[in-house]
C-alpha cells in the first residue's frame, strides 16, 4: 500500500470535492487510502454515500476547524 493520498477539495462546492476524489481514485491502486479535505458540509455527507454506492470503503469522517476529512479505501 502506498502513502495515503491527500485530495484537497477545500473551498470548492458540491460536487467539486467528489469529482476530485473520483479523478484521484483512477490514479491509485486497489487497497490504497485517500483522504479528501472539504470545507463543504454537503460533500462531507454525500461522498460516503457515493463511496458505498459504487463499492469502495468509507473508513472515517472527521471535522477539524471547519475542514472535513473523509478517508476512503479503494476497494476495486
Amino acid at each position: 500500500m502506498g502513502p495515503r493520498m491527500i485530495v484537497d477539495g477545500k473551498g470548492s462546492f458540491c460536487p467539486g470535492p467528489l469529482m476530485e476524489l473520483i479523478a484521484a481514485l483512477k490514479q491509485v491502486h486497489v487497497g490504497d487510502e485517500l483522504e479528501v479535505l472539504s470545507t463543504d458540509k454537503g460533500s462531507a455527507n454525500d461522498i460516503p454515500e457515493w463511496v458505498r454506492k459504487v463499492g469502495h470503503e468509507h473508513l472515517s469522517t472527521t471535522e477539524q476547524d471547519g475542514v472535513w476529512h473523509i478517508v476512503v479505501r479503494k476497494a476495486k
Binding site: 473551498g11 470548492s12 462546492f13 460536487p15 467539486g16 469529482m19 473520483i22 479523478a23 483512477k26
Partner: peptide, 17 residues
Amino acid sequence: SKQVPEFKMLFEQAVEL
C-alpha cells in the same frame, strides 16, 4: 462569487469519468 465548479467542467467530467 463562490468557488462553484464550472458547469462546462462538470459536463466534461461526466463524459471523462
